[in-house]
Design a protein around this nucleic acid. Sequence first.
DNA 1: ACCACACCAGAAGGAACCGTTCTGTTCCGG
DNA 2: CCGGAACAGAACGGTTCCTTCTGGTGTGGT
Lengths: 214, 214
Amino acid sequence: MTDKPLSGRKAQAARNDKLILEAAHEVFVADPEAPIAEVAKRAGVGISALYRRYPSKEDLLRKLCADGLARYLELVSEAVEAEGDPWEAFRAFMRGVVLADTPSITVRLAGTFTPSPEMFKAAVDGDAANREMMKRFKSAGILRADVENGDLQMVTESICSINIGDAERTRAVRLRALELYLEALREPGAAPLPGSPVSDEEMGARWIPRNMKE
Amino acid sequence: MTDKPLSGRKAQAARNDKLILEAAHEVFVADPEAPIAEVAKRAGVGISALYRRYPSKEDLLRKLCADGLARYLELVSEAVEAEGDPWEAFRAFMRGVVLADTPSITVRLAGTFTPSPEMFKAAVDGDAANREMMKRFKSAGILRADVENGDLQMVTESICSINIGDAERTRAVRLRALELYLEALREPGAAPLPGSPVSDEEMGARWIPRNMKE
DNA sequence: ACCACACCAGAAGGAACCGTTCTGTTCCGG
DNA sequence: CCGGAACAGAACGGTTCCTTCTGGTGTGGT
């Protein structure tokens, strides 16, 4: 409570900016359909403090999702540019995604707002970077050849769907599940995988707002 | 449409029994918070046809969940009593759970109703059978020693959280993800798993109705 | 010293949703 | 030919939740 430059209306506002984003992140990760009042309560501010910053709930969600997308892009970039043991780079990437919980804030929220053009761009960029990353890891011989981008998405998404009350414990259990998966992703695979991985179109279809479906 | 004994009010009623349960299954698997009118529409019946059979939505959900639990018990029993290749028995069990989608109809619905005493019994029985199954597979040397019951639950649950529009395609993608996991579950594991598996208490905590939380 | 304004907390408005009940109809069975 | 079981869907009432509105407070400029 007793921050450093406590006084100043501007300072409080700046602090609230951060408080609100953090609260929104926590709340919507826990429940994508949470009411906006929950965010305000968690942040310890009034509702009007929210509406001063974001014109609507949808805008807040979009911002949150864009941040998550950006974080994901960072992680991919790190993985692509990493030097040293490729396997550890891959492992770090996957752990990073699970720890940052980006699937919960991107795909899980998808469909609740109309994506902004920037987000489309981020998606395209991310796709390219993803592809680059897969290529690198495969040519390094650490990733089995028959896993593809869609497979990784499914792995991280399904792991991030694990949720058991306590946040700390949830994180631990997810990392445990990840370790299982990692073992299976590593080259060489025992038997070929059945079916085909999730395609880009299939992944993309989830981003169209629910209102516009069918 | 042209069934065998098409006429008869009793016959239609019996047919509706089934239609309603099937529709409810589909609807609530797709969206656990779906309105009850959605079930009626999917079943092609009126709302009153539903309320004639179940006193309330909660009762319908409970019935659905109980059926899912029973199906799960069947699968465990089959696995325990299976003869022949233990690995194939285990694999069949996991595929069975994923295909029947029992996690979506049990755990995912948990908390939306107060469990019936029968369900508690089923849970206890299931637990014992589960334990028996794990013991068998481990002593057969096909399951790595450091995976436990909670791990399997997490695996099936997270796989069943995968969902991409089309039902048929979703099934295929889930089976693909399962194959990855299976490889990782098989003895011998490369490295020990981190953390501890989800405990029975943790799993059980999710069944207490949301109203009663905190 | 003081005041205009940025900022904020929380109540009020108003619309949408949904579980349940109610009304009127159909058609089997005796 | 009638009594009533079964049904479709409208109506009701309660709840939820986004958004706007009201009233209050402290700050920075003058």
